[in-house]
């Protein structure tokens, strides 16, 4: 997996909503590449993960409502989460799985089985 982030090429959003780039961990094991992203406040319904042209897009829609009342202290703001990664061809794109727990998204990208080594016999004529 190449971890090059593509800049968001699509046009600017018409709504004035804030987008944050979530913090991610990406690690690789012999079997799979795993992406872990912090997306607090995003429910399963608000999560949109898509794979298009080898680009994996994580989009967490802001669903938690901002509490009513007078703001006494504001150190963080709610917003959408969005991040994109380019997926290498060695990933088995059909069996990607994702799991959301306690505001942490975990996407497992299994590697496709390596091509079996083949011995080529040279035929004598």
């Amino acid at each position: 997996m190449q971890n090059t982030e593509k800049p968001v090429v699509s046009g600017e959003n018409t709504k004035g909503e804030t987008y944050y780039s979530p913090m991610v961990d990406i690690y690789e094991t012999p079997q799979a590449v795993t992406v872990v992203a912090d997306i607090p406040g995003v429910t399963r319904d608000g999560l949109d993960i898509s794979l298009e042209d080898d680009i994996l897009t994580i989009h967490g829609k802001m669903t938690c409502e901002i509490p009513e009342g007078r703001v006494l202290l504001q150190e963080y703001e709610a917003g959408h989460f969005m991040r994109r990664f380019t997926i290498a061809e060695t990933i088995d794109q059909s069996s990607i799985s994702a799991n959301l727990d306690k505001g942490v998204l975990k996407i497992v990208l299994p590697k496709s089985a390596p091509a079996k080594p083949r011995k080529i016999e040279v035929q004598m004529t």
């Binding site: 912090d38 406040g41 009342g69 007078r70 703001v71 006494l72 963080y76 942490v104």
Partner: peptide, 28 residues
């Protein structure tokens, strides 16, 4: 904000009449 301070977690505090609401993002 994150760069400026080393405080974790970031908190929001709201006042709703007779109560206070403290919220924090604590993923994982």
């Amino acid at each position: 904000w994150y760069n400026q301070t080393n405080v974790y977690p970031a908190l929001n505090i709201y006042e709703q009449g007779d109560r206070l609401l403290v919220t924090a993002e604590l993923p994982g």
